[in-house]
Design a protein around this nucleic acid. Structure first.
Lengths: 195, 195
DNA sequence: CCTACCGATCGGTAGG
DNA sequence: CCTACCGATCGGTAGG
């Protein structure tokens, strides 16, 4: 039990270092020093440096999928489901801030077969958002020119939250999601009627 | 003159490797092999590995500033200027695809004083966009709740282009900019009147 | 969780 | 642009 906690502590500290220094530039000795132990001792708890990165990436990928599933499993229009999916995505990032950043920026350092698996998961997640937008357009709810571009614009700006979100800041995750929905659904031009 | 070309070739090859493997994970020996020379020979052309990263980052930062200046130096509404700024940003990224990616993802590996300088430039660039949005709102052209969030959403999605843009793909840089303008100005909800 | 240590590799320099 | 090489550091293992 104490070993389990120590393992979690190692992963948490490593995640923080991976975020600030990057995976490749973070040495096991630096990690050990942050934990108050010797580098060799870490291997009593983990198999390799990469194993930590693997856990972080797959845990986050799984969280994003679960969040999306929650969003689209409830009845409603495509607009409702998109809003819910945005809320879920914001929630996953803001409640796993450091891990989300590491997942986004360090996944390329995974080795096979994990690299291929995580790319596949990212592709699938993007496809889920794309299908949601496509369905909404077919139903006459949405308008846009290119569904691939629109999906990527949305996801890039959502993932960007990890780079600037401050848990001690003014904006709550809910408020952030509300702002996103407003921008993407209605734009920022002051219209004459609907706004 | 041949030395100048060789230097540019080194920087170009390094940029490509930094993009795919990351700065820290790219060794001078790997770079040398890609160039068909010995690692030690590279130092006849450059001072250090980091010097290459410095050049890439500051060149791109400068390009983004110049682009923005071009956009706002012509008369027009805030909407016109925002559209022009988006066109310029898309242009800088798509014409410097690999360098833009390296700038975005590897700048944290710069050492002082360069690190502080590049952070300052990023902060200033974001402030320019923010002021443009702020002015547009004050003039009654724009609507949004939080100018900081809105600016970051816009810039994150613009920078995300570097991750998916394909020079051989269907969408031209101009078309990409047009799509961005449509999404951010009018949103993706099918309105009754203005759309 | 430690000491002691492994082979490999790192960025970079000397000298030509 | 090369050979030869430097000290430092890397991820990880053996054995306790």
């Amino acid at each position: 039990m104490s070993l389990v906690n120590r393992k979690e502590q190692i992963e948490q500290t490593a995640t923080r270092l991976f975020k600030t220094q990057g995976f490749a530039a973070t040495s096991m000795r630096t990690l050990a020093q942050s934990l108050g132990m010797e580098a060799a001792s870490i291997y009593a708890h983990i198999r390799s440096k990469e194993e930590i990165l693997q856990k972080v990436c797959f845990r986050l990928a799984n969280d994003f999928f679960t969040g999306f599933q929650n969003a689209v499993s409830q009845p409603g229009t495509s607009t409702d489901q998109l809003q819910a999916a945005i809320v879920e995505h914001v929630r996953v990032i803001t409640t796993n801030l450091e891990a989300a950043t590491v997942f986004q920026t360090e996944w390329r350092h995974l080795s096979e077969p994990y690299l291929g698996q995580i790319i596949k998961l990212q592709t699938e997640y993007e496809a889920k958002f794309r299908d949601l937008l496509k369905t909404g357009k077919a139903k006459g709810e949405f308008k846009f020119n290119d569904v691939h571009l629109t999906t990527r614009v949305l996801l890039a700006s959502l993932n960007g939250i990890a780079q600037w979100y401050n848990p001690d800041g003014i904006l709550t995750p809910t408020e952030i999601a509300t702002n996103f929905n407003s921008i993407f659904l209605h734009g920022i031009v002051k219209g004459k009627i609907s706004n």
